[in-house]
Design a binder for these strands. Structure first.
Lengths: 162, 162
DNA sequence: ATATCTATAGTTAGTCG
DNA sequence: TCGACTAACTATAGATA
């Protein structure tokens, strides 16, 4: 039929919602793949259906990207790191706004106001966590035998984390 | 001019590649937002430009989704968990194939062939990692003061993880 | 529930300012 | 570099099997 204007809001009907979820998830993964391929970038997409099923995609792998994300957001040490802020919605206390997207070398540096805010503690956590994460990931990889490019989804039963 | 058929392959020209990366990243984020809103699902997208900058989006937050992903893929204990396999590319040794996508209650369960494969070890790692992750995330949240819905991107300098 | 179909809404590569 | 434009391409809601 004539497709209506499409409002982006919650779909109330369960069946429709799930159908849409499936279709759009596929589309999202495809887009992510194209982005990774065309732009030679790392990318990961993780989704949870309302039913609690995980669907994840990553290049070169979900875990690679997730690990890197964790490491990156952990801010290594009280040192200079360039920051590109990606803000869009809502309020945001942007501290530094700097667009540094050169491809190869040459990267302008800025001081992140993090150096003196319990950095020792953070550093400890970060190092321990990174090691731990690596082990777990290796273990899981061995066990679940997931491939490199597309990842499997498994539902969430126990262990509430947040 | 006339836009050619569009091949999905690596763009060689740096400037173009970056332009495309930016445009497509925005598109990808938008799609993810729509998916989250329309389908009331959790979703996260993490990308790294070649320059090493992180751009992440997540609903309700990147860390929430990442944590949940980690917890989910860590497979709590030698117990039953339903599995939905999302495979698409390449070879895959699918162990279990079960589509359990009901919205509300009622979830079929299957035994994951993981119980006797160094589960103790995995469990150890997983528990320790989850705790550690939680701490780091809390710490980072406090420091970087990121908002709930859209996350900031920060570049990656030290600590190569993979 | 998964697959295909199709009209149309939405995305984006190339270009310009 | 960045935003705006727009033709061309692509995704997808709704329908059907």
């Amino acid at each position: 039929m004539v497709r209506t204007k499409l409002e982006i809001k919650r779909i109330e009907d369960k069946a429709k919602r799930h159908t849409t979820f499936t279709k759009r998830r596929q589309g999202l993964f495809k887009k992510a793949k194209e982005l990774a391929k065309r732009c030679d970038a790392q990318a990961a997409v993780i989704t949870f259906s309302l039913a609690g099923n995980v669907f994840a995609f990553g290049h070169p792998s979900v875990d690679d990207v997730v690990n890197r994300y964790i490491a990156a957001t952990s801010a290594p040490e009280g040192n200079e790191i360039p920051v590109h802020k990606e803000a869009e919605k809502k309020d945001k206390d942007v501290v530094i706004e700097n667009n540094v997207d050169q491809e190869d070398e040459e990267t302008t540096s800025f001081e992140l106001p993090v150096g003196d805010m319990g950095m020792d503690e953070l550093e400890q956590f970060e190092v321990a966590m990174v090691e731990m994460k690596k082990k777990v990931v290796d273990r899981i990889n061995g066990i679940i035998s997931n491939s490199k490019y597309e990842d499997l989804g498994s539902p969430y039963t126990g262990l509430t984390l947040n």
